[in-house]
Simulated scan of single mutants.
Amino acid sequence: MKQTLAQKAIGAALIHDWNLALKLNQELLKIEPQDVDSLNRLSKANFELNNHTKAKTITKKVLKIDPLNSIAIRAIEKYASTGDRKQNNEENNISPGNNYQYFIEESGKTKTISLLHLGDLKTVLGLDCGYEAQIKPALHRVSICTQEGVYIGRLPDDLAARLIQLMRDGCCYQAYIKATGKKEVIVFIREVSKSDKCAKIISFPRV
């Protein structure tokens, strides 16, 4: 039940349904009140719903449980600069719904990485932030493609080798475009589910 609720909470955040994300993470915390992943997501949902004081309080709670939690540390820094960031976004006409800052990181379950050997420039520059791409594993490589199967780029060999094995063992992942440029595409990869065989394996261990 907890895993299903967590997946739904993550999904709600990815589509920016913050009211649903708030409700789902509150349900998760009834099951495990000290779960820092749920607390971080709840803080994020409150922040996006303009409950800034509540968001800060929740993040401070995370830091009491886990003082080195990188997500909470970054959140506190972000909350401290909220006024300046909001002003900059308005001046530059940046849409929050399309901003990569809205991707939620989870320790061991997410990875942000630059692709190698990029595909056609027109394809790359036509990608929007938040676009869900396909992950296509092969024998020794993992390509990232559009939903139509058009090649975008590929993962570094070390990460590709790890994901190929994990996917063979039953793990599932999603990839989203986080940022693009003429010479760079950054993707955000999230673990969606694990098989029993991989239950104790961390998808993206900290190096």
Rank of each mutant, 00 (worst) to 15 (best):
T4S: 12
A6I: 13
A6Q: 15
Q7N: 13
Q7Y: 09
I15E: 01
H16A: 08
D17H: 06
A21R: 05
N25T: 15
L28G: 12
L29G: 11
K30Q: 13
I31M: 14
E32Q: 14
P33G: 04
P33W: 08
Q34Y: 02
Q34W: 00
V36A: 04
D37F: 04
K44V: 14
N46E: 13
N46S: 13
L49M: 08
N51D: 07
T53M: 09
T59H: 05
K60G: 03
K60R: 14
K64A: 15
D66F: 09
L68S: 11
N69D: 10
A72C: 04
R74S: 01
I76M: 06
K78T: 06
A80P: 00
D84F: 12
Q87D: 01
N89W: 14
E91Y: 06
N92Q: 09
N93H: 10
G97I: 01
N98G: 00
S107L: 13
G108K: 12
G108Q: 11
K109N: 05
T112K: 13
D120Y: 14
K122I: 15
T123E: 15
V124M: 11
G126K: 08
D128W: 01
C129M: 08
E132V: 08
A138M: 14
S143T: 10
I144W: 07
C145T: 15
C145S: 14
Q147S: 15
G149D: 13
G149Q: 14
Y151F: 15
I152Q: 12
P156C: 09
P156E: 10
D158I: 12
L159N: 08
I164D: 02
I164P: 02
L166C: 01
Y173I: 05
Y173G: 03
Q174F: 11
I177F: 02
A179R: 03
E184I: 05
V187P: 00
I189Y: 00
I189G: 00
C198H: 05
A199L: 10
K200F: 12
K200N: 13
I201H: 11
